[in-house]
Each structure stands twice: as structure tokens, then as C-alpha cells.
Computed example of a mutant assay.
Amino acid sequence: MFTGIITAVGQIKSAQAKGDGLQLIIEVPSGYLDDVALGDSIAIQGACMTATKFEGNTFALDISRESLNKTVGLDKIGPVNLEKALRLNDRLGGHLVSGHVDGVGEVFHFAPVDQDAYGSWLLRIKAPIDLAPFLAYKGSIVVNGVSLTVNTAEDVDGACIVSINLIPHTLQSTTLGKLKTGDRVNLEVDLIARYIARMLNKS
């Protein structure tokens, strides 16, 4: 389990074929791996992965073809959001996150909020329509591993349009500040909303 609070930005240094998937080597800030053991879970761009090898300030992970087919941003060199698995005595600063990507969305608007003295940006994403029942005003969503609050969610032309405000700290501390129109992003809906929807469908 995770919280959607990014603990570091790492860098995929290599992505080599392994079986039907890839082996990734990820470089992290100095000291980041001090409390991480072999087999521990780390979320990469919102996808839960297992650390399989350590060397200096890098760790390796194996990613299957299934995971590659269901996510974006894990098959090439570049920066990635990282979060270590939640401990039971940790603060829950974001919301409960499983690290299982529910769908891939597309950025179609990302710009500064007009007349916002604090430097916030408005992010609008086209999410798959099948995620719409789980997205609600002031509900939670995970974008590339980051826990965020939904400002609006509306169904338009076969997609669910989600609007989110990003504060400067989020822009500076995650990879979200590098987004641009047309980029695809990993999305995870609220875990509790998913279970409630399942229970309601059973009644």
C-alpha cells in the first residue's frame, strides 16, 4: 500500500529486454535506499514494483509485458516519481493507494491558473469513461503516483474530463511539472470508491 505522497524523483537509467518484459535500472538520490530491502515494494509512476537488486544509488526491477501494456512511462529512460511502501506507523498524508494502475489518461490542458498569485496550475485530463463512476468532486485520484484532489469530473464525448489544481510544491517535487498537452499519464481511482461501487452493483 502507498499514500500518493512522492518521496523522491528518480531516473530510469536503462530499460533492457528481459523475457517478455523489461529490466529497469533506476537511479535515486543518495541515501534513499538505506531502509529498503531486497523484495520491498516501490511505486514507480504509480505502479507497484519489486526491488530485485541494489548497486550504489541504483536499484533494479523486472516489469512484465502485462504491466507495460497497462501503464505508460516505464519503458524508456527519463525521470519517474517514487514512493516507498507504506508502514503501519506512517502518516497517511495523501489517501490509500494500491499501486495498481486502473487506466491511462491524456493531458489536454496544462497551464497556469489565471490571476493566481501563488503560481498554481490547472491540469485537465481525459480519463477512460469506465473510470467515471469512481471520480467525483473533491474525491481523490492518483496521477503518475501523485495523490491529487478532483476539482471537477464530467462525462464528455466518451471520456471523463477531470480537472485538478497543482500547487507549486507539487510541480517542483514531482515529475508532474514536466507534463505537456498530449502526454499520457497513469491513473488510479480511489480504492474505497472502487469497493463501494462493487458492493452497490451486487445489491
Results as ranks from 00 to 15, higher is better:
Ile5Ala: 06
Ile6Gly: 03
Val9Asp: 08
Gly10Ile: 10
Gln11Val: 10
Lys13Arg: 15
Ser14Tyr: 02
Gly19Phe: 00
Gly21Pro: 08
Ile25His: 10
Ile26Asn: 12
Ile26Ser: 02
Pro29Trp: 02
Asp34Val: 12
Asp34Trp: 00
Gly39Thr: 05
Asp40Lys: 00
Asp40Trp: 00
Ser41Tyr: 03
Ala43Phe: 13
Gln45Cys: 09
Ala47Asn: 12
Ala47Glu: 10
Cys48Glu: 03
Ala51Arg: 04
Thr52Ala: 15
Asn57Ser: 00
Thr58Tyr: 02
Phe59Ile: 09
Phe59Asp: 09
Ser64Arg: 07
Arg65Asp: 15
Thr71His: 07
Val72Cys: 04
Ile77Asn: 07
Gly78Thr: 05
Val80Tyr: 07
Leu86Lys: 01
Leu88Gln: 08
Asn89Ser: 14
Asp90Leu: 10
Gly93Lys: 11
Ser98Thr: 13
His100Ala: 08
Val101Arg: 07
Asp102Gln: 06
Asp102Arg: 01
Gly105Trp: 10
Val107Leu: 13
Val107Lys: 07
Val113Met: 14
Ser120Ile: 00
Ser120Trp: 09
Trp121Arg: 11
Asp130Met: 00
Ala132Val: 01
Leu135Thr: 12
Leu135Val: 02
Tyr137Val: 15
Val143Tyr: 00
Ser147Ile: 06
Val150Leu: 08
Ala153Tyr: 10
Glu154Lys: 03
Gly158Thr: 05
Val162Ser: 06
Ser163Tyr: 08
Pro168Ser: 01
Leu171Asp: 11
Gly177Ile: 06
Gly177Pro: 03
Leu179Cys: 04
Asp183Phe: 03
Arg184Leu: 04
Leu187Gly: 02
Asp190Trp: 03
Asp190Ser: 01
Arg194Glu: 15
Ser203Gln: 14
